[in-house]
Design a binder for these strands. Structure first.
Length: 114
DNA sequence: CCATTGACTTAAG
DNA sequence: CCTTAAGCCAATG
C-alpha cells in the first residue's frame, strides 16, 4: 500500500465492522479478524477494542470470544457493564457467557458477504 | 532493541 | 469442553 497507510487501518476496519453489528446480535474477535483478511490476528481485534474506548459508536460489548465468553468485561467502566449492556439488548448472559450464543452470533463474513 | 503480555484462535490429544 | 502448543502482532517495559 502507500506510505501514508502505514498506520493500522486494521483498527479502523475493526471499528467499522463493530459499528455494523446489529442490535441484539454478537460476534467474535476471530470473525471480525477473518472478515478483515487476518484470521490469525484476532488478538489485534481485541487490542483494537481496547483502543476503541474513546469511540462512542463502537459497541464493544457485542464482541465476545469464539464461545461467547465475555472475556473483555473487565475492561469496561465496570466489570458488570458489558453484561448489563447485553442484557439491555435482550441477550441473556450466564456465568460470563452468552446464552444460546450460536443463535445471536453475527458473522460479518456471512452477513455482510458481498 | 529484545522480552513479555494480551478483550484470541486453531489444531491436536 | 479441557489442556498444550503454536501463531499472530501492537503495545509496553
Amino acid at each position: 500500500m502507500k506510505l501514508s497507510e502505514k498506520n493500522t487501518d486494521f483498527f479502523l476496519n475493526v471499528y467499522d465492522v463493530v459499528r455494523m453489528i446489529p442490535k441484539g446480535r454478537v460476534t467474535s474477535y476471530g470473525a471480525i479478524a477473518k472478515y478483515l483478511g487476518a484470521p490469525r490476528s484476532s488478538r489485534m481485534v481485541g487490542w483494537a477494542m481496547n483502543a476503541a474506548h474513546s469511540l462512542p459508536d463502537v459497541p464493544a460489548h457485542r464482541v465476545v470470544n469464539r464461545i461467547g465468553l465475555l472475556t473483555g468485561k473487565m475492561h469496561f467502566s465496570s466489570p458488570t457493564r458489558m453484561e448489563e449492556l447485553l442484557a439491555s439488548e435482550k441477550i441473556d448472559v450466564a456465568r460470563d457467557q452468552v446464552v444460546d450464543f450460536y443463535k445471536y452470533f453475527w458473522d460479518p463474513s456471512n452477513e455482510l458477504a458481498l
